[in-house]
Nucleic acid binder design. Structure first.
Lengths: 214, 214
DNA sequence: CGATAGTGGAGAGTGTCGCTATCTATAATT
DNA sequence: AATTATAGATAGCGACACTCTCCACTATCG
């Protein structure tokens, strides 16, 4: 298969494919001449995956590269997969750590302890969570404590189902792939469902209708 | 209060404040001279809110402007708030609608019907959800149906708690503000919690430890 | 009173990101 | 033989979120 066919099958424009190859999201084809190369099914899979992470998952290209590298590398222990995926998939951010943030960080630790969640100190989600909590605090949404509890319970149920589902997969490669895909795409999936459910519940509880309510 | 104090209280650099004023995220101060203006507590609140939406919520500046305009406008019906907030907070995206997408859209309709969620046809989350489902399908994650069900249940529980909590607020302005804040910040909050819960569950179920498992 | 620092406002400049266009020498296809 | 496609390299583009510079003025400190 040559590049035109690769583009046709995946819907990704040829210049973009070339760009992704330069950036290492997709490996080069098997060379058959000075200006010829052959691509296979793996390229199709990998390109589709790259596209999904970037377009739907909203990942920066650099993070997508790391995630893809992880999937297609051998020698990863099954205990590392999740942690490494989370590192690769959480876009880096730097933030001032003021008083409100420190309190929020303590609140995170307390939450983890109370729920018995054993989480590595380096997990980047700790930072993200502390950021969000500190922000809520600064905005005066002080009644968020009971909501936070519901969020946490909810996350726990979800994670339980997810980990079981992924653990059911046979080989390590399929598991790794599923972890990356679901970590990245689960966020928008859940966000959409939450919005839809919110509208439905609002209509039910507050008495609005599902039609235009102008 | 002049701009330096505004900057100090919020931690936002002066040039950025000026930029936000140009972009309409924050209204101009009350003029007291050719090159003097006074800012009040409302500016502080609004600036903090703008910053939260952009930095933590990850919203484009244009969307943040819409959301802020909604909060600080009068004459919004309480039945419109949620829908309008969701419109303002869902960044626009265009996408090719191929066969897989059409199937996914049908699957969304079916899901909404089955769960009895009454959702307006125009809710942008329908598109986002269909995008995510279509992508999962294209990636061959075909066993996602039971997971989807768990996600939906989860979203429902969450939305129930959220809508009740927000409905408890007295006036419309506080409600509107809370809706915007929680819609925007709930996403990263939930995403972090999901990641933390995943790591904890993985350690528990797959036998890894919480320490480095190299 | 004068020197210095700060102000509001407008326009231009900057850095990053994700592509997209152009070029060249070659190869495949018609 | 003429046309089209290709790999790879380099350069350019448009959007975005700031950030800098300048100006005429104002506030404030010694």
């Amino acid at each position: 298969m040559r590049i035109a066919e690769l583009s046709r099958q995946t819907g990704v424009p040829i210049p973009t494919i070339k760009y992704y190859m330069r950036e290492g999201l997709v490996p080069p084809g098997e060379r058959t001449g000075p200006n010829q190369a052959r691509y296979g099914e793996e390229h199709v899979r990998r390109l589709r995956l790259a596209r999904a992470l970037v377009e739907v998952g909203g990942l920066p290209v650099a993070s997508a590269r790391e995630a893809l590298a992880m999937i297609f590398s051998s020698g990863i222990s099954e205990f590392d997969v999740l942690g490494k995926a989370q590192y690769a998939l959480t876009p880096p951010r730097e933030r001032a750590e003021d008083d409100a943030w420190d309190e929020a960080a303590a609140q995170v630790d307390e939450l983890l302890a109370r729920r018995g969640w054993q989480v590595k100190p380096g997990n980047p989600a700790r930072r993200t969570l502390a950021d969000a909590l500190a922000t809520l605090r600064r905005l005066g949404q002080d009644d968020y404590l009971d909501l936070l509890e519901t969020y946490a319970e909810t996350a726990e149920r979800l994670a339980d189902t997810e980990v079981r589902a992924i653990g059911r997969r046979g080989d390590l490669h399929a598991m790794t792939e599923a972890i990356v895909i679901w970590t990245a795409l689960g966020d928008p999936l859940l966000a959409s469902l939450r919005r839809l459910a919110q509208e439905a519940q609002a209509a039910r509880l507050l008495g609005g209708t599902a039609e235009e309510t102008a």
